[in-house]
Amino acid sequence: MLANIGNFLSSGENLVFFVCALLAIGGAIFMISYTQVVHMVLALALTFVSLAGLYVVLQAEFVAVVQILIYAGAISILMIFGIMMTKHHKGDEEEPKRPWHNGLLFVGAAALFGIIFFVIQKTELPSGEFPKFEDNTMEIGKLLFGQHVIPFELMSVLLTVAFIGAIIVAKREED
């Protein structure tokens, strides 16, 4: 099994994948482990940036840039503004006592990693040639504004309605 790990980490691309995957998993674990909301948002941003790194390794540069712009940037900033706009009293809540929590968390994460690693090693992936495009962004644009234009426009209407609904809800709470 150690020989498999050595072969896996022999190329730089696999090493970058491994580091980005560990950072994404670690950020997700920290996200659910922290009790302060600001720390949770920072761990979530780490997960988003690590996922963007995985997209770069997979040669999906457009998706990686969108991941950073929308998720790591906009969503994280929106969460931080939400935290700043709400009232928090630091002394009101008592820290829950969980003495076994960190140990069980580590055991669970290690078990999940082992299962995923075992499944990946035993899986036979089909070999085939995928068409390689010169410009991924142009091909995504052709698909979005050609074949998938209706779902794209429906998503923009849905996001606009959600934004207007959030404004109405915030206005009611203010009154």
Rank of each mutant, 00 (worst) to 15 (best):
E93K: 12
V56W: 06
Y71V: 06
A45W: 02
V37K: 03
R98I: 11
V37D: 01
I68H: 06
G73E: 08
E94W: 03
T35F: 15
L104H: 01
H89G: 03
F62G: 04
Y71W: 12
M84N: 12
V65T: 13
A43I: 13
V37A: 09
H101I: 00
L42R: 06
E94I: 13
G103F: 08
L42F: 15
I75R: 02
P99R: 07
G53F: 07
A43L: 10
V38K: 13
G91T: 14
V38T: 15
G103D: 00
A64H: 03
Q59W: 02
R98K: 11
L105C: 00
K87P: 04
G91F: 13
V57T: 14
A72R: 13
G73P: 12
A64K: 05
V38Q: 11
I70G: 04
E93M: 08
V63P: 04
I32Y: 14
M40R: 15
M79S: 10
F81R: 09
V66Q: 09
A45I: 07
H101Y: 08
A72F: 11
V107C: 00
Q67H: 06
V107H: 00
I75P: 01
S76F: 04
L51R: 01
I83Y: 15
T86P: 00
E95H: 12
T35M: 15
G82Y: 10
E95L: 08
V37G: 01
I32Q: 12
Q59A: 10
G103A: 05
Y34S: 12
T47K: 05
M85C: 12
V37Y: 04
F106P: 00
T86N: 08
F48R: 02
K90M: 10
M79I: 10
L104D: 00
L44Y: 03
L105T: 05
A52H: 02
F62W: 02
V37C: 01
E95R: 05
V37F: 06
E95G: 01
F81G: 01
F81N: 10
A64Y: 01
A72T: 09
A60M: 12
V63S: 14
A60L: 10
V66W: 10
W100P: 00
F81W: 08
M40S: 10
H101S: 06
W100V: 11
L69W: 06
G103N: 05
I83K: 11
F48I: 01
F81P: 00
H39A: 14
G82C: 11
A74M: 13
L78K: 12
A64P: 03
M40Y: 07
M84T: 08
A45E: 14
A43E: 11
A52Y: 03
A74E: 03
K90I: 13
